[in-house]
Structures are given as structure tokens and as C-alpha cells.
Simulated assay, not measured.
Amino acid sequence: MKFSILIAHYNNAHFFKDCFDSLQKQTYKDWEAIILDDASSDHEKKIVQEMISKDKRFKFFENEKNSGVGVTKSKLIELAEGEICGFLDPDDAITPTAIQQCIDIFRAKKNTVLTYSRFMTCDQDLQPIAPFRSAMQVPNGDPYFFNFPIQIAHFVSFRKEVYEQTEKMNPDLKIGEDQDLYLKMYEKGKVQFIDDTNYFYRTHQGGISQNDNKKKSHEYFAQVIFSTMKRRGLTMINGKKIPDHYTGAEQIFGLLQYQHQLPFRIKKKIKITLQSIFG
């Protein structure tokens, strides 16, 4: 079972060594790394290409022009030859057993379409700061699950064959494209949490989620959730009408505030427990 690591690269060669080294250390050996460069400078591309030149498992591709993360990640999945895919940012890294743990679940549980674990927030030198504590097993098969608050996060892997059955990743999204992917995959089968910290998430000024786009992420995520509501054919949620057309993040997130309340959280925990017992 081949695993395709998908890397969308744009002028991050300075940090790529840690990413590269973490893949070299994987205990699971049947993997490929697909790098799609989104019109980086020639200098940046050369650094990456020289680094991977001696390992045939790395494949380097280029966009003709800067196209953004949605387009780039969509193309990466198309380029993947593996049965299982997982995204890894070029400025981040994974633990040596990260791929093996994913593969073990996909082999054992045929109805699992997506796995995810916990990430460690790190400084710009990839030194740990704190784990993402919200990561946990979510209830499966719930049409009102929107990953809000976020629980499914890095390290995520998924079956490419099942992805092909979805509407696929939205290439127009510049932020939130990962959440869009998770919710579409969620609708096709079971998702499984790996209770380990398998991903090192680097925070630095050049990161896409730490630059000016961070201000827009709330809006993009709301659009993803609204699209999910429509795709699932929902018209009401918790007794409130879902608008016919997108009106803004405030209204969409307002519809989901009940999911923060204690009665809902207790019911969710019971459902997760029962699913873990009875499958």
C-alpha cells in the first residue's frame, strides 16, 4: 500500500530540510513525496531540487504561474500514485512512525476513509511549544458535524479512491481548503483519530496561516461550512433556518453556537463512546 506525501511548495526552501529529513526517517518505506512548486523563485526551487536529487521517491513538479493553495493541492492529489494520501507543508515535519500508523488503520479498517492525529505547535526552529489539545475522536455519520470547533487537523491522511467519489477539493479556496476536504471525506465513510502527536507545525512569519490571510480564514471557513450544509441538503439546524444564500460568517457560526453548550457536548461524548464500543 503506497502512501503519497503531498507537498505544496512556495518559497519555503529555507525550512524544507526538516521536512525532508522527517520523511527520510519514516519507518514505513513504501511512500512517494510529490512536490508541486507554485512559481517560487529559481533560487528556492534549486535548493529543493538539489536536496531531493538523490532520492527517487521525491518527484518535483511546477505550476506555470502562481495559482494558490487550492489549485496546487488539487493538482497534487491528481499527481499522486499512492492509495493513501497525506498533505505535509514544506516548513513542517512528521514523526518517524506517522505514516506507519496511518497505514495500519487503513489496512485493518476498510470502511475508514480518513485518519488524523494531533499536531505540536512549534517555534520557527521547530522546537515544541504546545500540543493541539482539541484533537480527539469525533462522532461518525453525523450530518450536523462541521469540525467546529476544529478537532480534525494534522496529520491527516485519506484514501484517494474515496476522494475521487467526492466533489473533490475546491480550487478556488485560498484558505480553508483542508477543512473543505475533511468534510467531504467525512461524508463518505468513517474517520479515525490516532491518539498521538505526529505532526510538527512550525509558526513563522512566512507561513500562510500566520500572514495577512489569517484575517480572512474565519470567512473562508464559514463559506466551507455553508457549502457543506447545502451539499448535505440541510435546511434547518437546531431549530433555526439555514439561509438560502451565504450572508456572512457571523450568521453561519451563529447557527452552530449550540455545539459549544454542555448538553450537546455530553450527547456527543456518549455517541462517540457507543461508536467506539459497537463500531
Rank of each mutant, 00 (worst) to 15 (best):
C85G: 12
C85Q: 08
G86H: 10
G86I: 11
G86F: 10
F87E: 05
L88S: 02
L88P: 00
P90L: 00
D91R: 01
D92N: 07
D92T: 03
A93K: 10
A93P: 07
P96S: 02
A98Q: 03
I99R: 11
Q100Y: 14
Q100I: 04
Q100R: 07
Q101Y: 13
Q101G: 11
C102L: 09
I103R: 07
I105P: 02
I105K: 02
F106M: 09
R107P: 06
R107L: 14
A108N: 15
A108E: 13
A108Y: 00
A108P: 05
K109M: 07
K109T: 03
K109I: 03
K110L: 14
N111A: 07
T112N: 13
V113E: 06
L114H: 13
L114D: 05
T115W: 11
Y116M: 03
S117N: 07
R118Y: 01
R118M: 11
R118H: 02
F119V: 05
T121P: 03
C122L: 03
C122D: 00
C122W: 01
Q124E: 15
L126M: 10
L126V: 00
P128M: 12
P128Q: 06
I129K: 12
I129G: 09
A130K: 05
A130Q: 03
P131N: 02
A135P: 06
A135K: 11
A135N: 05
M136V: 10
M136K: 15
Q137D: 06
V138R: 09
P139G: 00
P139T: 02
N140G: 04
N140P: 06
G141L: 14
G141P: 08
D142Q: 11
P143G: 12
P143Q: 06
P143Y: 13
Y144P: 13
F145I: 06
F145D: 00
F145E: 07
N147Q: 09
N147A: 14
P149M: 00
I150L: 08
I150K: 05
Q151S: 07
Q151K: 12
I152N: 04
I152K: 04
A153W: 15
F155Y: 14
F155Q: 01
V156T: 11
S157D: 05
F158Y: 04
R159H: 03
R159T: 02
K160A: 12
K160M: 04
K160F: 12
K160N: 04
E161A: 15
E161W: 05
